[in-house]
Design a protein around this nucleic acid. Structure first.
Lengths: 152, 152
DNA sequence: TTCCTGTTGATATCGAGTTGCAATTATAGC
DNA sequence: GCTATAATTGCAACTCGATATCAACAGGAA
């Protein structure tokens, strides 16, 4: 019995299709996982979730699909300061770049947008004649909660 | 015949000793490699250079020493946008944080300091109540040379 | 010089990611 | 709706950076 294909195509899927890429069942599954993720997932987490939807999906296909999405600028790859080994995390590329802050004590990841960051990128493009394609600003430190907790 | 131990101890070595850490021959060798590096080196390059000074130095000791230096905030670990596989690169932590720009075409790494970056960090500390320990801003794109080369 | 503890090296191992290749399948053209 | 074909997939073996274990060793305080 075929799975119900009633859900809306999703932005990632529409993007890939408009670029003339084949839309396989596996890709649809992986894209839906990435698209609906509410946190930063690594490749093995994406695989696990994809397998729940379609047990046939292979590790290799996840890696290949992530590489494809990255190459097309549809997802960003994060390291999150290597706080969890050498894992890489993925998120849909947002409209506006943001900064990732990782608390070295509790591990919480916070996101932050800033005009200053946008201006900094503008300065770099101008002063260095460097055409920016992708940025990654990750900050390690201690979040407000952990700071006040350690003061007591 | 013992190697001449006449060279000045070096800042890294002095730092580690002042923190009460044992100064072994291997550590001295690895520190001198890191300290005199004129480019960003990965672990295997550091090993190769260390072995030229002391063929006894083991891979494992290089990894352990780098981890130690990182933990003490004496070196920074860079990914350089993963342009060369999963290698990590190391550099002595500078007085003032800088940005790394990686050209996606020629691979050149450029460094850049900016008041805006310093102000951005200040904003984050203030607005997010986040105590910054380490930052990493890496930018991928196309350098001036490659941009003008591709226009012809 | 001695002793104790931190450090090292050899080996095995881990885990993320990749490669080669035969089998499968999406899709364009009829 | 078929068919052809080129892209995609799954499997297995593999690469490579990094880590764990543990016995042997050595820095440095007393």
């Amino acid at each position: 019995m075929p799975l119900p294909q009633t859900e809306a195509p999703g932005r990632l899927q529409a993007e890939l299709m408009s670029r003339g890429l084949r839309m396989t069942h596996q890709r649809r599954t992986i894209l839906s996982v990435v698209e609906t993720a509410k946190q930063h997932l690594d490749a093995s987490q994406i695989l696990r979730r994809a397998r729940k939807l379609d047990p046939q999906v292979d590790r290799v296909t996840v890696y290949r699909t992530l590489k494809l999405l990255k190459r097309h600028g549809l997802v960003d790859e994060l390291d999150l300061m290597h706080m969890q080994g050498e894992k890489h995390f993925y998120e849909r590329r947002p409209q506006r770049d943001h900064i990732h802050m990782a608390c070295l004590r509790c591990g919480k990841i916070t996101e932050f947008e800033s005009d200053l960051f946008d201006r900094l990128k503008g300065q770099i493009q101008r002063d260095c004649q460097f055409h920016i394609v992708v940025t990654r600003l990750e900050i390690g430190g201690y979040c407000a909660q952990c700071r006040s907790a350690s003061k007591q």
